[in-house]
Computed example of a mutant assay.
Amino acid sequence: MRPQQNPMVLVSADLLVQLMQRTGDGREVSVRDLADAAGCHPSKIGHLRTGERETATHDEALAIAKRLGVDLLVLWEHTGRANPAPAEQSDHLAAVPA
C-alpha cells in the first residue's frame, strides 16, 4: 500500500479553464477527457473548474498537468506543514447531537 500523499492545491480555476480551451498541442480538451486522463470522475474536474473544489491528489494533479501540456507547478501547489491544504466545503448537512 502506498503512503498517503498530501493533496495538491489548484493555483487558479480560471487558469485551468484557459488551459483546457487550448492545451499544449493547441487543441481543446473536454471535462470527460481530462477526467479520463486523471483517473477521476468528471464531476471532480467540473468542481475544479468552478472553484467549488481546490484540491486533487498528487497523481491526479500530475496527470491533469501532463494532459494539458504544462509543468505540474504551473497549475498546482504542493501542500504540507508550511502550506496546509484548504478544507473542502461540502453541501451535505452535518449531523447535530440530539
Rank of each mutant, 00 (worst) to 15 (best):
47 H>Q: 15
89 Q>E: 12
94 A>N: 03
6 N>W: 02
54 E>N: 05
96 V>A: 12
97 P>L: 03
24 G>S: 10
53 R>E: 06
72 L>S: 09
44 K>L: 15
55 T>N: 07
94 A>S: 09
68 L>M: 11
27 R>H: 12
63 A>C: 05
14 D>C: 03
8 M>V: 08
6 N>E: 11
33 D>Y: 00
36 D>Q: 12
42 P>I: 10
30 S>I: 10
43 S>E: 08
79 T>Q: 05
47 H>K: 15
54 E>T: 04
85 A>V: 03
93 L>F: 06
97 P>Q: 02
14 D>Q: 13
91 D>L: 14
56 A>C: 08
63 A>S: 13
26 G>Q: 05
7 P>L: 04
22 R>S: 14
68 L>P: 13
3 P>S: 10
49 R>W: 02
32 R>P: 00
6 N>V: 00
35 A>W: 03
12 S>Y: 10
85 A>R: 04
1 M>S: 15
54 E>I: 00
30 S>Y: 09
86 P>F: 07
74 V>R: 12
73 L>W: 13
90 S>M: 03
53 R>C: 04
44 K>A: 11
19 L>M: 15
64 I>A: 06
97 P>G: 03
90 S>F: 02
42 P>G: 06
44 K>N: 09
40 C>Y: 06
25 D>R: 14
87 A>T: 14
92 H>M: 13
2 R>V: 04
92 H>Y: 14
17 V>I: 13
15 L>F: 08
35 A>N: 02
30 S>K: 09
28 E>K: 14
81 R>A: 01
70 V>G: 08
73 L>K: 12
71 D>F: 14
65 A>G: 15
53 R>N: 03
69 G>A: 05
19 L>P: 09
45 I>H: 01
37 A>Y: 02
63 A>M: 05
14 D>Y: 07
60 E>P: 00
16 L>I: 10
34 L>G: 03
84 P>C: 05
25 D>S: 13
57 T>D: 10
1 M>T: 14
18 Q>E: 13
31 V>E: 05
16 L>M: 13
30 S>P: 10
43 S>K: 08
43 S>C: 00
84 P>K: 02
49 R>P: 01
62 L>T: 11
64 I>N: 06
92 H>W: 14
56 A>F: 02
7 P>Y: 03
88 E>H: 11
71 D>P: 09
35 A>T: 04
59 D>A: 15
89 Q>P: 00
3 P>Q: 10
59 D>C: 02
58 H>T: 06
19 L>F: 12
71 D>G: 15
34 L>Y: 03
60 E>I: 02
21 Q>R: 15
74 V>G: 00
33 D>H: 06
43 S>G: 00
32 R>W: 02
62 L>M: 08
88 E>T: 15
50 T>Q: 03
